[in-house]
Design a binder for these strands. Sequence first.
DNA 1: AGCTAACCGGACGGGGGCGTCCGTTAATGT
DNA 2: ACATTAACGGACGCCCCCGTCCGGTTAGCT
Lengths: 211, 211
Amino acid sequence: MTDRLPHHLRSDALDNRDRILDAARALFATEGLKVPMREIARHAGVGPATLYRRFPTKQMLATEAFTDEMRACRAIVDEGLAHPDPWRGFRLVIEKTCELHARSRGFTEAFMATFPNAIDFVAERAYALNSIAELAHRAKDAGHLRPDFVLDDLILMLMANRGIQTTSEAARVAASRRFAALVIQAFQASPQHSPLPPVARLAPAAPRKAR
Amino acid sequence: MTDRLPHHLRSDALDNRDRILDAARALFATEGLKVPMREIARHAGVGPATLYRRFPTKQMLATEAFTDEMRACRAIVDEGLAHPDPWRGFRLVIEKTCELHARSRGFTEAFMATFPNAIDFVAERAYALNSIAELAHRAKDAGHLRPDFVLDDLILMLMANRGIQTTSEAARVAASRRFAALVIQAFQASPQHSPLPPVARLAPAAPRKAR
DNA sequence: AGCTAACCGGACGGGGGCGTCCGTTAATGT
DNA sequence: ACATTAACGGACGCCCCCGTCCGGTTAGCT
């Protein structure tokens, strides 16, 4: 899926590549995906040409830079799925996902892929969503998750979490943590929940053959 | 506060001014505050100079363009405050506020004033926040609002609501409506709410003297 | 050491947004 | 009807970002 890491790069080239990725990770996290490519190049101490040579497009750079986060994302849903208590697992997924996304502004944008041409995180996202759907199903059966919960609510929650922007990362994480707790409270089954307004189709999030 | 509306504008000038405001309202709502000034001018059918002559800065334009929303915002909190049942009033405020913000992407940005130099909505915002604080106090006393609710939670909710972005306005409003319902569920007092993570200071939103 | 190819980054032309200047147009009052 | 003057908008110079080309540099191999 992702292009093979070129095996026979010269040592300086490989070094530059790493520095570029480090810079990209740092800047994407703090500034979001919209940082100018040149800013990344400058921060990495290389020329623009070098950056474009290794990563012709920002999407390729982002895809490469966010593999760690993508792995973490997968680990989170797997952990939640493996938890003996589905409701506990569900809560864990929400908490950790919110924190993960709060830590990197750019990752959320990439994951959401609200961008012109979607980064090919689609497969990973579909996997995560499917897993969570399964988890939600179990949590409903256990009577802890409200029955009218739908998967779109989780996407709604993710989109909402993205809106939380503060000055420092620490403040953002703290705010996101509290937000997650509130969301969990909202999702919890309760004898007295009034009916929810209907969902609207949000994003082409379903693993469809669209295109 | 806001510059006086120039009394002695020539008729064509006044006409242009109105068209500019209409265009600004439309574009701010759909595209957000970041639309180029020239785009607004083009959409209004005037030259850039005319736009800049009437509204030297984007903030002034936004301030003028969003007076309706601002008025609506004030009306909402007043209505909520006047409601005999404080919890019912609180819910109304949340629902209507979410919808109002869902309808205009730009208004939220202006209201939040996350921007370089804050638009002088600060006074209005402070008024709204103070009113809601009072309302929340009553709702807590009535035992319907969870006791650990703080005003920052509402700001958190607004920020989160801003994150909801969809293709159409209708979808955004629908999503926002459901979001509001979930938030209300989260805020409702419940025998079984686990303690919330601590809040982090979010924005310099705190009204200076009051409280 | 010396060669060669891989690699580097400064520089270029294009595009777009910004705020302002100034020559032209037309609304207004007599 | 006509002078006056407010008002208009095209055009200018500035800055920033984009993606690419090309002459100089250096790693790596013999």
